[in-house]
């Protein structure tokens, strides 16, 4: 199996909410000082999904990351987990894109890679939460895509996958080549073993500039946006919590029940 995983570097979503800041003059998030970026959670699970196919059937995993000033230790994590090679679409021209321009550049990079059976993406990225890029890549390449996948079985060149829905899951059969977007119900991504980290340190990522993937420069990054960002802001929260006290926790809890009754909540 030839596999491609799209993995995005994002500000750490687990950083304390109090450190989250938006610069209204640029409409951009200010990275919290001292908190390094990470691979978006769902993309790490997408790496895990590819690794499990490789564990069972063998194959090669190429990781694609798009951005600018990518932190090598961060984008190499999938390699440390067990992926085979890393291609970076790294250039200022790729920055500040939307789902459309990002999917377009990634699809063009996939075309340059050529041979593949499955492209794995996370269900959505931890920064913009749009959940569109995997679908967009498939639509641009004209191949099928199944979203919100929580299980993948490979047999006879055909995939049988489980897709999450509100009240359970659907079983879907999909031919290769195809795109799968992976959801957290798939399971936890594996830790990168020390041996993997050492191996990853020796792998030199391939960097592709826009000219390398033959993209139309007006269609990538900020220039290629189809959705215009008018305003980015933090919703104002009014802390109004009434803390119910008591001699001990049990008494406070009983007082809480009484309070809810008085306030006609129950």
């Amino acid at each position: 199996m030839e596999m491609i995983v799209c993995a995005k570097q994002v500000p750490d979503p687990e950083a304390p909410p109090a450190t989250f800041k938006v610069d209204p003059s640029t409409n951009k998030v200010v990275p919290p000082p001292g908190v390094p970026p990470v691979i978006s959670t769902f993309d790490e699970i997408a790496v895990e999904a590819a690794l499990r196919v490789k564990d069972g059937k063998g194959g090669k995993i190429t990781v694609l990351s798009l951005g600018n000033n990518l932190v090598r230790d961060v984008v190499k994590k999938p390699l440390a987990m067990g992926a085979d090679q890393l291609v970076l679409l790294e250039d200022q021209a790729y920055e500040d894109g939307d789902s459309w321009s990002t999917a377009y550049a990634l699809a063009m990079a996939v075309k340059k890679i050529g041979q593949f059976d499955i492209i794995f993406c996370g269900r959505q990225a931890a920064d913009w939460d749009a959940g569109q890029v995997g679908i967009g890549i498939a639509e641009i390449l004209g191949i099928p895509v199944v979203t919100l996948v929580k299980k993948v079985d490979v047999a006879d060149g055909k995939l049988t996958v489980e897709r999450m829905v509100a009240d359970g899951h659907e079983i879907v059969e999909v031919p290769t080549p195809c795109v799968l977007t992976i959801t957290n119900e798939f399971g936890e991504p594996r830790y990168a073993p020390l041996k993997g980290i050492m191996k990853a340190a020796k792998i030199q990522p391939t960097v592709w500039k826009p000219a390398d993937i033959e993209v139309d420069a007006s269609q990538i990054g900020a220039q290629g946006r189809r959705a215009k960002l008018g305003k980015l802001f933090q919703p104002v929260k009014v802390g109004k919590c009434e803390i119910i006290e008591g001699e001990d926790v049990a008494e406070a809890a009983a007082n809480l029940a009484v309070k809810l009754r008085e306030a006609k909540v129950i």
Binding site: F20, D129, L229, G230, F233, Q234
Partner: peptide
């Protein structure tokens, strides 16, 4: 966006 930390108008 950003896991509910911010809102964006498009």
């Amino acid at each position: 966006v950003y896991g509910g930390n911010a809102r964006a108008v498009f």
